[in-house]
Design a protein around this nucleic acid. Sequence first.
RNA 1: GUCCCGGUAGCUCAGUUGGAUAGAGCGGCCGCCUUCUAAGCGGCAGGUCGGGCGUUCGAAUCGCCCCCGGGACGCCA
Length: 626
Amino acid sequence: MPAAASHQQSFDPVQILHDRFAAAIAAAFPEHAGGAADPVITPSKNPKFGDFQANGAMPLGKLIGRSPREAAAAIVKSVDLGDIAEPLSDASIAGPGFINITLKNTALARLLDRLDSTALGLDPVHGAEKQTIVVDLCGVNLAKQMHVGHLRAVIIGDAVARVFERMGHKVIRQNHVGDWGLNIAMVTAKLIELEKRGEKIDKLDLDRLEKLYKAAQKECSADERGLAMVEKYNLGPKALAEIGTQVHEAREHLAGAKNTLVKLQAHDPATVAVWKRIADLTMDACLATCKRLGADVTAEHSAGESSYAEELAPLVADLVARGITQESEGALVIRVEGFAEPCIIRKSDGGFLYATTDLAGIRRRVQRFGADRVVYCVDARQGLHFRLVFAAAHRAGFDVAPGHASPSSLEHAAFGMVLGQDGKPYKTRSGENVKLSDLLDEAVERAAAAVAGKNPDLSAEERTRIADAVGIAAIKYVDLSNDRIKDYVFDFDRMLAFEGNTGPYLLYALVRIRSIFRKAGSGMSALRADAPAAITIATPEEKTLALTLLRYPGVVRGVAASLEPHRLCQYLFDLAGAFSSFFTNCPVLQAHDEATKRSRLRLCAITERVLADGLSMLGIPTLDRM
RNA sequence: GUCCCGGUAGCUCAGUUGGAUAGAGCGGCCGCCUUCUAAGCGGCAGGUCGGGCGUUCGAAUCGCCCCCGGGACGCCA
């Protein structure tokens, strides 16, 4: 196989046309050959304007002080489209200076042939293009169930990581687990207390643990304001006694928790043992849910805050020594240009904060792991926090990898909230967070009912398997197909409707293709690698399908650059639609002649591979039947 | 108060570097299964792209000012 670089571009019509037109502009206007004149090649929206259009003549006309149509005429005259497209003429120029281009069907066939033979246009990056990319995802906390708030951090993070992996980058997933600090010490203290009272904690489950966590939080939270009010307004000895008791007990609990934190930090074996039990219990449940979701998040990706605990004091000391920090109201902060708020890295009581840990995280990821990019798949509400931390890390020089001249890229792939039908954050009727496992259960249950209705002939075992795949696909796809930054409304009926831009629709499109191959039998010889069938593009449906297939590599690169998986979803939906039209209008196995049948089989095969490949990047497993 | 993000068809959402008549799906209406899975395909109806001003040959897209909704704003994470 030829080296990727030049070969890789040679099936992308946009790239080819860009090169041809850039050459034509350089030839026609040598004085502007510096690259300022972009041909601006885009797919045409309306078929009557051809397949592609070159829109560069308008800005070029302005640049050279002639009318856009004149510029277009000069470009048309000098461009050499060879056997790629139909010859251009003055009739190809429309409106203010659009140049309409229609590809030759033979060229489409040739490009598809190349796409088919080169890892679907995505040969692994190599050399300087290959990056090390850290993807921060999942982000669970100890002693808490995964709930709907974690859904996007897992699904989007996993998809983004898969896209990078597919492109050949080195990806390091990091599940930044909230497993340290006073809150965790509180629940640890609570457990120790219970055990002292003789309660068994070995058989604890996560539900019970979460209740204990909330109870511990409450116990440690003193009503200081209430006490102040009682004292200020002299509300009487009874009120004073009541609230005084509450405050006194809370202060004691808090002191106990702080003491527990000190013991944890000092690696006291008994305390650490209890903490470890909490950690194991939580992480087992978390990783099980991730596995069920088909997300590649495992124990080796865990990087808890506890793993940074020993680094924080030296890190802060280093920053102080380098004069990057300053004191402010008793706290230690890093001032960042353009922000009124400072980045606080040490509290006035000497404790560290999540910004401190995040700074340590950036330093580890860039300087130890060698990350060229660090991508945080975290809720949009943390936007300000990340901007501060990124800027602080930059001031500290933590974002420059060893041997690198320029800083690595720190990116917050922020996502919006999951809303209920009332437009407010998605909760249970009683106002609790919805457990992720319950959400998955319900999706699978609903999918099972739908599958049973649509295809009663399946065995119970197969139906279960399909329902599981469809239910999970529905949830993941709806999350990924919405613009990341926006909130979206969670609606089981819509995502499982099997119509429109949904996971089930895409799975179905793929199933229909695979069904053809099951029935093809000896026709499979059309796909033999040593003698593949010749592709012929004859019908409008074949042409649309071909044009859509050829967009694939560019779409994937766009997703990697923008961190927006919904572009891939939109593309796969387009492709599934193009295939469905083809499927309806172009008989494959019943084609009029053998050559057409073989050509169409190969179109099916390429579509099948692209759909499956795209879905695999979304972390959605496919089915053979449904 | 300051900052960030949204506002596109009745509903849910796309809209690439500014490009021609703004697109899907659902819902409504009308067609298409003797033939590869109709969970599909084709068509019709449905829009002051929140409002205004500006930049431009050209604005849903860029700039400024408003309106509405959400979010974040020093020692929680």
